[in-house]
């Protein structure tokens, strides 16, 4: 098996890895690079637990080949908080009790970031449809949607 060398950037840090042609970005993140914050719920693009940003585009990392990611900028849940602390989305998820088991949470936070980057002032319907690819079985989504609304309100408020 010929391995493919890939040089990419994960959370603004240059990363080099070897992968097999059929390995997905999710496989490499979790198994090769030890970035296990990105979760696997189905490996078929139906649950969103493995959501990451590739060049700021929201994708399921289980549906991206690792070999395709050379030269890209990948954002995972490990890259959301900063030296200053939690990202506002992370904080609001905690404040609103928007997680119960928490396994869908990394994917939802990434998807929310992507939503608010593009639509800083989304209505409830926009939020629900944007997040429709992120299954949560614990919360019934209510507190998740409220957390997102609250982040958006803060973003819209006086600087």
């Amino acid at each position: 098996m010929n391995k493919i060398q890939v040089i990419t950037s994960i959370n603004h840090e240059e990363v080099e890895f070897l992968c097999e042609p059929q390995e997905t970005l999710l496989d490499v993140l979790r198994d090769t690079l030890g970035r296990t914050g990105t979760k696997e719920g189905c490996a078929t693009g139906d649950c969103g637990a493995c959501s990451v940003l590739v060049d700021d585009r929201l994708v399921c990392s289980c549906l991206v080949l690792a070999a395709e990611t050379g030269g890209r900028e990948i954002t995972t849940i490990e890259g959301i908080a900063t030296e200053e602390g939690l990202h506002p989305i992370q904080q609001k998820f905690l404040d609103h009790a928007a997680l119960q088991c928490g396994v869908c949470t990394p994917g939802l936070i990434i998807a929310t970031k992507s939503l608010l980057d593009r639509h800083p002032d989304p209505d409830e319907t926009t939020i629900r449809y944007w997040l429709a690819g992120n299954l949560c079985r614990c919360t019934g989504y209510d507190k998740i949607v409220r957390a997102v609304q609250d982040v958006a309100r803060d973003l819209a408020g006086p600087a």
């Binding site: 693009g45 959501s51 994708v59 399921c60 939503l115 997040l131 690819g133 992120n134």
Partner: peptide, 8 residues
């Protein structure tokens, strides 16, 4: 598909 699928 989802927003994620839309990205690809």
């Amino acid at each position: 598909g989802s927003t994620q699928i839309q990205g690809r």
